[in-house]
Design a protein around this nucleic acid. Structure first.
Lengths: 100, 100
DNA sequence: TTCGTATTTCGTAAAAATACGAAACAAAGG
DNA sequence: CCTTTGTTTCGTATTTTTACGAAATACGAA
């Protein structure tokens, strides 16, 4: 991590961008940002992928910090991680605003 | 492409996001958006990777439509693709603004 | 306790991304 | 023509991503 070339911001931005780098994850995020929270099963109905694959995508979004899941047995409720979502929004905004 | 789940916007957003999903590419884009255009060799000095690897990253950004290169022998001048950059900015903005 | 529901983890396979150095290329200058 | 310069393409190796179905887990209800 002792890299003088990439700053923490570069790395975080890349991390968030990568998490959004698949249409399924974009759709998941879009659904979550519109209707607050969702259960994995509800998401499964809106996506053309196996539930295990959906679970993997959810894990990636979670690892990147964009979403969080709270257990609500026997289901798991996924919501945006608002704090990180705000950070990501800010990082992207700064990048896009920096043009001449 | 006949997928009723992912819209064209989801796919384009994912494409742009994926292109930004590596710190080297974030840095490249940041440099380009700040100082209009750059030569590949100049970028090489700011990045901790081999020139051939840089060339690959530039190709990916070009394939995603975020940058364009114009030949200026014996060098190649890379610039942002402004139209697509605007589109990407708009797509991200819409995504981030759609929260409750 | 056994069953049913919701979801994840495991095992695995195939494809894509990342990286490097060597070689190729294209154009200008000697 | 030969060399130098800037850059890309090729060949290759390693790692990561994407995807699926089967099995495991966790919990409430019967």
């Amino acid at each position: 991590m002792e890299n003088t070339y990439y700053t923490a911001k570069h790395q975080r931005l890349a991390r968030y961008a990568k998490a959004l780098g698949h249409p399924a994850r974009v759709l998941i995020i879009e659904l979550l940002s519109r209707q607050s929270c969702c259960y994995s099963g509800d998401l499964a109905n809106d996506l053309p992928i196996a539930r295990s694959t959906l679970s993997q995508h959810l894990s990636e979004l979670k690892d990147a910090g964009l979403i969080q899941g709270e257990i609500n047995p026997p289901r798991i409720r996924y919501c945006l991680n608002r704090a990180n979502w705000e950070e990501a929004a800010q990082l992207f905004k700064t990048l896009f605003d920096s043009q001449l």
